[in-house]
Simulated assay, not measured.
Amino acid sequence: MLRVQRMLDCCAELLDEVGYAHLSTTRIAERAGVAIGSVYQFFPDKKAITQALGLRFLDQFATRITDRLAGADRSDWTAVVDAIVDEYVDMHRTVTGFRSLHFGDVVDPQLLDRGADNNRVISVRLRQIIVAHHGLEDGEELDRAVHVSVEAADAVLKLAFRNDPDGDALLVLEAKRLVRSYLRQFSEPAADTAPQ
């Protein structure tokens, strides 16, 4: 519905302008040019609106990665890692509201899903994309590897953007190198790497 999308667009604009602490349903309604009752018809409070925005960002992120991988070599982990990190960095730089909200951690570590941390929700979505792109067999090992990769990349990318609004290019590269190195285990012959 166009009215809901307009509210989400205005929420994103306001997040970049005033931050979550100063965001309100009243401000969103005023910016969207709708009555406050229209906001409450769809969202009980500002947290619900930011949750919807975070889920929209997640869908955009997944679509951008899937589109980028459409023509990529299915055996190349580098292309997958680059696509994920590059699309995250580009969204941070260009998508209104994303740099302020990301996928919701600034609001609630479980904003995207009451039953899971935001990074867990992201790792599940990325694992689905990776399985579809590479034709890999899904399972606990891949699930754990993607989850660890998301957590590690998230930490380094937060560092990259901490003091540089465009993201420190060298730290972005380090995030890629870290994840590529870790995921290399899935593109090489299996070895006994279980802890003793």
Rank of each mutant, 00 (worst) to 15 (best):
G54V: 03
G37F: 01
N119H: 15
V124K: 15
I84T: 15
D154N: 14
I36T: 11
E87P: 02
D113T: 09
R93V: 07
H134T: 04
D105A: 11
A29H: 07
H133F: 02
L53M: 11
I122E: 08
G135H: 01
R56T: 05
D76W: 10
V131E: 05
V39G: 01
A32W: 13
L55C: 06
Q41D: 12
I36S: 12
D117A: 12
V106I: 06
Q51F: 04
R125W: 03
H134C: 02
V81F: 04
E137F: 04
V80I: 15
T96Q: 12
H134D: 00
E87A: 03
D86V: 11
H92K: 05
R56G: 08
K47N: 08
V39N: 04
D113L: 14
V148T: 15
D82L: 05
V131C: 06
M91S: 07
I49C: 11
R144W: 08
A72V: 09
N118A: 04
F43M: 07
I84G: 01
V146C: 07
V124H: 14
Q128G: 06
L58F: 08
E87V: 08
H147S: 05
Q110E: 12
A72E: 13
A70M: 06
I84N: 06
V148D: 14
S38A: 14
D45N: 15
F103W: 07
K47W: 02
G54K: 01
L112P: 12
V124W: 11
V95P: 06
R68F: 00
L111P: 09
A72Y: 03
D82A: 08
L111R: 03
S38I: 04
S149R: 06
I49D: 01
E140P: 10
L53W: 06
V106H: 03
R99W: 00
I84P: 02
D90E: 07
T66Q: 11
D143V: 04
D138P: 05
L136A: 06
G104R: 04
V34R: 13
L101C: 01
V121W: 06
I122M: 15
F103D: 01
V85M: 09
T96D: 13
E87W: 13
D59K: 13
L58D: 02
A70S: 14
E87Q: 13
H147G: 03
G33Q: 11
Q60A: 03
R144Y: 09
A70Y: 03
R125E: 14
S123G: 07
R74N: 05
T94H: 13
I28Y: 14
E141C: 03
F103S: 00
Y40R: 05
I84M: 15
V106A: 12
L58A: 09
A152G: 13
I130S: 01
G104L: 09
R68K: 12
V150L: 10
V39Q: 06
K46C: 00
V121E: 14
L112F: 03
R56C: 01
V89T: 08
V124A: 07
I36W: 08
I129T: 15
D154L: 05
L142V: 13
D90N: 08
L126C: 05
S123N: 14
H134P: 00
T50S: 07
A70Q: 10
N119I: 05
A62H: 02
K47C: 08
R114F: 15
P109C: 10
D143W: 10
